[in-house]
Design a protein around this nucleic acid. Structure first.
Lengths: 188, 188
DNA sequence: GCACAAAGCTATTTGCAATAGCTTAAAAGC
DNA sequence: GCTTTTAAGCTATTGCAAATAGCTTTGTGC
């Protein structure tokens, strides 16, 4: 029997493809094994089990988002940067609706996620530093931005907005809310 | 063997107690059966299966929240009502953190949830009507409010806010953002 | 060319949801 | 007050997916 040449990265790839195609509920070891052309127990040579696979998938999603958000904020500052960041966040959800559902719940608590989660949070903090926000005020503002953006994204990813009104319009209103609601220390 | 005298309501009660005590992951038919003093297959006399039980639990959570939110908004209007509504929403999460995690993803899409979901949405719409908001603008504003409030609540319920800063302060900032960002037609 | 680590396999166990089909408690009718 | 019937409960069984144990094979390094 020829060797499949799997790596844990390839297992995560297959898991993501599965999630994209059939939703988070389709992520089973049996399905991943079938897709990678291997028997289910063989996966344990690369991952410790389903919980770890979920964690690895979550890490990949966070990394991808960090890259996108960083690119969007790059070269902009203040309101421009905030709006670009928020639009990039949602665009990830629009591009990969199922993937967003496996975004880890508490990346800042779980020790195995805290590094990656912090890196993502740093992108937000960097944008807010453009307003001169530091310390506690920056934390509160980050939480507000995160809550608004994640709330919209998670509802949209779940298909939870019922009525037919344009979602872009709603989101632009949310962006305006956040932007105008950020504390504004005097510009020197 | 004495009869347990179960009803579907009692099954949902047991499910909620389990979720409160051990988290959403602990909701299994086996556990519910043990708690109600009945063999697992007996539960099927009252519920169609685990998916239905989850749905019933979700409905109860939505109903409870609707009651709380309605009571909070009662007798207030405009900014007062909006702030009270938002505080009541979060207070539910603080009181029942695990329960919030089983709040249905898309209550406005699923035909079996749409009535209850609409009733909840009506509470928000009623508050926004106090600003003279109608039609599309009311929909967009409702989505923003919902996104902000649900985003904060779901992150907090999952224990996802890492740093030690005071959460009440963060939330008051979010309330201020939303309140000041709502469209304001001229008061007659 | 051989030794050994790693990648793969089959077989098995465990936990839970779900179905089938039987038994008996309790309420409704006479 | 006895019978009839409905529905609440049971045990036994099936099916599925994760996980573990232990064997086999492939490929690399010496």
């Amino acid at each position: 029997m020829p060797r499949a040449g799997l790596t844990s990265g390839a297992v995560v790839d297959a898991a993501l493809a599965l999630i994209d195609e059939e939703g988070p509920g389709a992520l089973t070891l049996a399905a991943v094994a079938a897709r990678t052309g291997v028997a289910a127990p063989s996966l344990y040579k690369h991952i410790r089990g389903l919980p770890e696979l979920r964690k690895l998938v979550g890490l990949r999603v966070m990394d991808d988002m960090t890259e996108r958000l960083g690119a969007a904020a790059m070269g902009r500052s203040r309101d421009e940067a905030t709006a670009a960041l928020m639009r990039a966040w949602r665009s990830y959800v629009v591009d990969f609706p199922h993937r967003y559902a496996v975004f880890p719940d508490n990346p800042l608590i779980d020790p195995e996620l805290v590094d990656t989660g912090t890196r993502l949070m740093e992108v937000i903090l960097a944008v807010l530093r453009g307003y001169g926000l530091e310390g506690a005020e920056a934390i509160h503002a980050t939480r507000c931005l995160r809550a608004a953006v994640h709330g919209f994204a998670s509802v949209e990813a779940a298909g939870g907005f019922g009525l037919g009104e344009n979602l872009d319009t709603s989101y632009e209103m949310l962006i305006a809310m956040v932007v105008s609601g950020l504390p504004r220390p005097p510009t020197p």
